[in-house]
């Protein structure tokens, strides 16, 4: 198995009558020359780090070294606990967790890149919120992480998972697609539903640029993690309801690659375009790094 396409993953799973995670676990154990138990155990450790990264993000008074980030997860969590959210507790929890992990990252806490540090809040927020809400076994979530990884590998092969290469669609988009796939599998959706969820998640975020203020993984990254987990739930819900993506997942990934290629360099992590180039973005950059480094950021 070469992780060349989502279609290949689905075909193999259907042929064997098993989940995508089952075939990925078998294949990866072979490739890495370890037992399946050892492989799953290693993923369990990553899952535990994800849980810790949520908890540390809820600490009061968290601030990043630049001073640009901190406290959003805490506020969101308070709103949830006080029953003030519009979309209910479940959804508020998901947003709060995504913010928490992302803020942990910005504040030099320990995280699991998934697939990158910038987009590290989406996958843990999706899985942990679902696990708590539906009282699903831990093992189901850990195994679903292999399905997420397989989707990530296909995207990395055929498009990109780096903001510098493909814009934020490659980071938060990929993370959303990975999370959507994992959610559908964990909820008992079919293999085809997994594929549609991936496609829908990327479609919804196609074209998103990477424009971090001052070049730091903070603004807008933290909020895009919240948006990313919301998008993952949107895609998973639609797919689980039996709604199909007219464009198949592999073609959506292809489109994402093409869109990334045609994005100007200013919109790919150079902090020269988008939000980074706004008057406020530039002012914040000067506040952190001083005049010399932030002489404006080139205009678009």
């Amino acid at each position: 198995m070469k992780y060349d396409s989502v279609a290949e993953l689905c075909a193999l799973a259907k042929e064997k009558g098993c989940l995508i995670s089952d075939i990925v676990i078998t294949e990866q154990a072979k490739a890495q020359e370890v037992t399946e138990e050892a492989l799953v155990e290693r993923m369990e450790k990553s899952f535990a780090v994800m849980e810790e990264s949520v908890a540390s993000g809820f600490e009061e008074g968290l601030v990043s070294a630049s001073g640009l980030t901190g406290g959003a997860a805490y506020k969101m969590k308070q709103a949830v606990d006080e029953g003030k959210t519009i979309c209910g507790k479940f959804f508020g929890e998901a947003l709060a967790k995504a913010l928490a992990v992302s803020e942990t990252n910005a504040c030099m806490g320990k995280i699991v890149a998934a697939p990158t540090a910038g987009s590290c809040g989406i996958l843990p927020a999706a899985l942990l919120t679902l696990m708590e809400e539906k009282q699903l076994p831990r093992q189901t979530m850990v195994r679903a992480l292999f399905t997420a990884s397989a989707v990530g590998m296909v995207i990395a092969k055929n498009a990109s998972i780096a903001g510098a290469e493909g814009g934020c669609q490659a980071e938060c988009g990929s993370a959303s697609a990975m999370a959507a796939a994992a959610l559908v599998e964990a909820c008992g959706g079919t293999v085809d539903m997994v594929s549609h969820a991936c496609a829908i998640a990327i479609k919804n975020i196609l074209g998103l640029v990477c424009d971090p203020v001052a070049g730091l993984v903070e603004i807008p990254c933290t909020k895009r993690n919240a948006a990313g987990v919301a998008n993952a739930f949107v895609a998973a819900e639609l797919a689980l309801a039996g709604i199909e993506s007219a464009i198949p997942a592999d073609e959506v990934i292809w489109a994402m690659k093409k869109v990334g290629d045609s994005m100007s360099a200013a919109l790919k992590e150079t902090a020269e375009g988008g939000l980074a180039a706004t008057p406020t973005g530039k002012r914040l950059c000067r506040r952190v790094f001083g005049e010399r480094t932030c002489n404006g950021g080139k205009e678009l």
């Binding site: 993923m43 942990t104 504040c107 806490g109 699991v112 910038g118």
Partner: peptide, 21 residues
């Protein structure tokens, strides 16, 4: 590339290139 390149590495933030590397 394997699954732990995608879900991983476990690292101290904020940036894989500017911190982990």
């Amino acid at each position: 590339m394997d699954v732990f390149d995608i879900v991983g590495p476990i690292m101290v933030g904020p940036s894989s290139s500017h911190t982990a590397g």
